[in-house]
């Protein structure tokens, strides 16, 4: 008990005294996951919106597939990205394995389906509601996509935050493709896993506390956005 309390005090002083190593890890985590979410947004939102608006054979199947991809096991994603990036893999020449870029790629693979699927859901609901009105105003189906994305902006922010939450808390994929190399690819989750197994609980605890803080902040933003969206008449499915 005595030991735990002192670990806890140490963790607190690490955070409060601005321990350089600790904050470098936190910053790398934030950078990797923010980048991943931005790229996922750039891919996932247009794809999701197109799926919501366009009608083509096989669309239903694609949506089912997309929804299934939301639950991809991170370790499997890590494995697949590892195989792609490893020396003998198709992208081996890029020498990206064990770099932050590799971690970003893995998180993009994890987060893009989430962003695309949630976008599809939100935009499709809105498209149904807007369809006749927009046609009456002379807006073509193609031209309606940016209108719908903009009007769904609050719900889409929620989708991006959900994606960010998943990215930053994920450990299985980044540890495989990042390798948890000190000062290079150590992020919060992988450091917690490593330091805990080494018995360095203070650093693990400090990172854990920060991670929980981030999760709470993300959730607070999600619920305030949801509240605003509901007030403005955008219900979630």
């Amino acid at each position: 008990m005595q030991g735990f309390a002192s670990e806890f005090n140490q963790a607190l002083s690490l955070i409060l005294q601005g321990d350089a190593e600790l904050w470098a890890i936190v910053l790398l985590s934030l950078r990797v996951s923010l980048f991943a979410v931005l790229i996922s947004a750039a891919i996932g939102m247009p794809v999701g919106a197109a799926l919501a608006v366009a009608r083509f054979p096989g669309r239903r199947m694609l949506i089912i597939l997309l929804n299934a991809l939301m639950g991809l096991p991170p370790v499997v994603v890590g494995l697949l990205v590892y195989l792609m990036l490893s020396r003998s893999g198709p992208l081996g020449v890029l020498e990206l394995l064990y770099t932050p870029t590799a971690m970003i790629i893995a998180q993009v693979v994890l987060v893009t389906p989430i962003v695309a699927a949630l976008t599809r859901q939100v935009v499709e609901m809105l498209a149904e509601e807007y369809a006749e009105q927009l046609r009456s105003l002379g807006v073509s189906q193609m031209a309606s996509v940016p209108v719908l994305l903009w009007d769904a902006r609050l719900a889409l922010m929620t989708a991006l935050l959900a994606g960010f939450g998943r990215a930053i808390a994920e450990v299985g994929a980044v540890i495989i493709v990042g390798g948890n190399i000190n000062h290079v690819t150590r992020v919060m989750t992988t450091t917690i896993a490593l330091e805990t197994s080494k018995g360095n609980l203070a650093l693990a605890l400090a990172l854990g506390a920060i991670l929980i803080g981030i999760a709470i902040a993300v959730n607070a933003m999600v619920s305030s956005l949801t509240l605003r969206a509901e007030r403005e008449g955008l219900r979630h499915a």
Partner: peptide, 15 residues
């Protein structure tokens, strides 16, 4: 394009 319509339950944009 030269017709306007006000629907029975009008849809206003979320703006």
């Amino acid at each position: 394009a030269r017709q306007g319509m006000v629907f029975q339950s009008p849809v206003l944009l979320r703006r």
